[in-house]
């Protein structure tokens, strides 16, 4: 029985017919986003948090910062780990269980965007090289699914990190002491994820769940402040023409700029 979303044939035809005229069923143009809302400081027990609503997709990210032990191959870098869980409450066809391949792909793609943009200067998150570093965990709960989890999750992670306050740890002999001081994270850049789908040869931005059920393939590109593309992921069984990939790159830079501005406004003041 349906373990995923099945779109009605007549809805599929409506989506395809509308796109042939450059339109979408919810009235958007092909390169328009749905309504994006970013609310920060929603979880007081987290070091940083953000609730993002993109259309009817809703996700909540929380940051936890503590002391930790560095990986042996990067003794001079703090830990930054992004995790995502699509809660079983988020759609009728989901069941509780360990994260499946889509949830793991989601977390890894969002993690890659944050990591490759060098958003956080992890080399300054060291308390004692090789022994103690800061560990920054960003966990995301997907509360309601209506397409484009990649972007909603990424914006929540970035906004939560931008508003996070970390404890200042100092070395006290062999142990680590919390000074009680709170500092912002060493942020260098604001990466923005932009996800597009191809439906019957047309490229669309920010697909809904219905559009995702009809799409041939999906592409996510992350850009950073200077307009460099810093991470990417193609998904789903269909394919893109090289021209579409280039259009996607152009959109990701142009739209990324707009959304970066929105994220900055929503997180202004830390």
């Amino acid at each position: 029985m349906p373990k995923s979303f099945v779109v009605e044939t007549i809805k599929r035809n409506q989506i395809v017919d509308a796109l042939a005229k450059g339109k979408r069923l919810d009235g958007r143009g092909v390169n328009e986003y749905r309504k994006l809302e970013i609310k920060t400081h929603v979880i007081q027990k987290a070091n940083g948090s953000a609730m993002v609503t993109l259309g009817d997709t809703q996700v909540l990210a929380g940051v936890k910062i503590d002391k930790g032990v560095p990986f042996p191959d990067t003794p001079d870098k703090g830990l930054l780990i992004v995790g995502a869980e699509v809660l079983p409450m988020a759609a009728s066809y989901l069941e509780a269980g360990p994260p499946d391949e889509s949830a793991i792909e989601l977390a890894r793609v969002v993690d890659r965007g944050v990591r490759e943009s060098e958003m956080i200067d992890v080399s300054s998150l060291v308390i004692k090289e090789g022994k103690w570093v800061y560990s920054v965990f960003v966990d995301v709960n997907i509360l309601n699914v209506d397409g484009n989890l990649f972007d909603a999750t990424s914006y929540a992670v970035v906004a939560a990190l931008l508003t996070a306050k970390m404890p200042r740890f100092v070395l006290d002999g062999d142990t680590v002491k919390d000074t009680g001081e709170r500092l912002p994270l060493p942020v260098r850049k604001v990466p923005v994820s932009v996800t597009m789908a191809t439906i019957n040869g047309t490229l669309v931005l920010d697909p809904t769940e219905e559009e995702e059920a009809v799409m041939d393939a999906r592409i996510t590109l992350d850009t950073e402040d200077e307009g460099h593309i810093c991470a990417g992921q193609k998904g789903e069984p269909g394919s893109f023409t090289p021209e579409q990939v280039l259009t996607a790159a152009e959109w990701s830079i142009a739209k990324g700029r707009e959304i970066r501005q929105k994220i900055k406004e929503a997180t202004a003041g830390g």
Binding site: M1, I43, K45, A46, S49, L60, G62, V63, K64, D66, G83, E85, L87, P88, E95, A96, F137, D139, N141
Partner: peptide, 30 residues
């Protein structure tokens, strides 16, 4: 789901209480 656990005379009530990793002072394993 799974079908073989269905009860002939009543609904099967399932409940999942879960804490988000960021819901407590120290991060909780999901």
């Amino acid at each position: 789901h799974p079908k073989h656990l269905e009860l002939a005379d009543r609904a099967f009530l399932k409940c999942r209480y879960h804490m988000a990793p960021f819901s407590v002072e120290e991060r909780k394993n999901p």
